[in-house]
């Protein structure tokens, strides 16, 4: 959390600034995930460089993000299953 104590601001401004920073931090986290995913999907989907993406590359890039989300929730589900199983035995 950002320290705004030294800024000599009234509590309303402090709150406003705090809220602004939280929003920007959330935005920065999304931005950083987009950087990671672009890098990942670029390596997976893009072949040789030309003046435009091929249809295959285009659809691979389009699917790449959604399958990443699916992978993430799939694995979370698997871990939960494992944990439930371990708890039952």
């Amino acid at each position: 959390m950002a320290d705004t104590a030294g800024l000599n601001l009234d509590s309303v401004s402090q709150k406003e600034l705090q809220q602004f920073i939280e929003t920007e931090q959330a935005h920065a986290r999304v931005q950083s995930q987009v950087h990671n995913l672009t890098s990942l999907c670029w390596d997976k989907c893009v072949g040789s460089i030309s003046s435009g993406f091929s249809g295959k590359e285009q659809s691979c890039l389009a699917n790449c993000v959604d399958r990443f989300f699916d992978t993430s929730s799939f694995l979370v589900r698997k871990v939960e299953e494992k944990r439930a199983f371990a708890g039952a035995s």
Binding site: V30, V34, L37, I49, S51, F53, V65
Partner: peptide, 21 residues
Amino acid sequence: QCMDRYLEAFDMINRTYVARL
């Protein structure tokens, strides 16, 4: 060309990611 493609990919991933979120 690669820079143009990368920026294009970034844009695409950005849009898909935000939509999925």
